[in-house]
């Protein structure tokens, strides 16, 4: 083998390394095809994680209308971060703030991930007409599937909606298919995006704004944990 010049590897060494590199990449590609994983969907949570019985609902708003602070959530039913927030943080905030009349929550659809997002929002807006948006969104997150895999099926919605008290499933489907709601859901990405862009540079979900009384809302940039949200809401309630 020719000695190296100033430590530079010989051409033979480099060719050998290149060969090893190509072979290793080929092994990885074959391994990826043969030994690929079996992940498919996030785990289903069969039971509701929060009890909303007795809490006032009006359209997209959950909580007493007189509550001083509003927590505005921009969400997409396909967004796993939104799912995490709803299953892990939302129940705590409901019990600590909403049920006590301190905070109300407002849902704003930002269906940006794909067709399932728009379809999901259509059903949520239809549920809002019966003041049951919050129950349906919680239920859909519990059964969230892979993005744009067509997981929001009529059958899934029908099954979940049937378990929500005082929700007329027939009316839900009729409203979800109406021209007005179809138009509203289709335009929600643009509308919510315009609204969000007043407060954040990067449009993402979930995004939260806090509004105190009739003041201008402000962006809440906190971790998805109850402690951080509690602190943000306590802070807003102090004002």
């Amino acid at each position: 083998m020719r000695p190296t010049v100033q430590g530079r590897p010989t051409w033979l060494k480099m060719a050998l390394a290149l060969g090893i590199g190509v072979a290793a990449a080929a092994v990885l590609v074959i391994g990826s095809q043969v030994l690929r994983g079996t992940k498919s969907t996030p785990g289903v949570v069969p039971r509701p994680v929060v009890n909303l019985t007795g809490i006032p609902e009006n359209g997209t708003v959950l909580g007493k209308p007189s509550a001083k602070v509003s927590l505005i959530e921009f969400a997409d039913q396909q967004c796993p971060g939104c799912r995490y927030y709803t299953l892990n943080v939302f129940p705590i905030l409901v019990n600590d703030f909403v049920r006590r009349g301190k905070v109300k929550m407002e849902y704003q659809g930002f269906p940006f991930i794909g067709p399932d997002s728009v379809k999901g929002l259509r059903f949520l807006l239809a549920a809002a007409k019966q003041n049951r948006l919050w129950q349906l969104q919680e239920a859909l997150y519990r059964y969230q599937g892979r993005e744009n895999s067509g997981w929001i099926t009529d059958e899934l919605v029908r099954t979940l909606a049937a378990k929500i008290p005082a929700l007329d499933v027939g009316k839900l489907f009729a409203d979800a298919g109406s021209t007005a709601i179809t138009k509203e859901a289709s335009g929600a990405e643009q509308k919510s995006g315009n609204e969000m862009s007043k407060y954040v540079d990067q449009l993402q979900t979930p995004t939260f704004l806090v509004k105190i009384d009739d003041q201008k809302p402000y962006y809440v940039n906190v971790a998805f944990d109850a402690t951080a949200f509690r602190a943000a809401l306590d802070d807003a309630l102090k004002d």
Partner: peptide
């Protein structure tokens, strides 16, 4: 569960 979805989606 804590993936932040940026515009364009797809990551999840």
């Amino acid at each position: 569960a804590t993936v932040v979805c940026v515009r364009g989606g797809g990551c999840e």
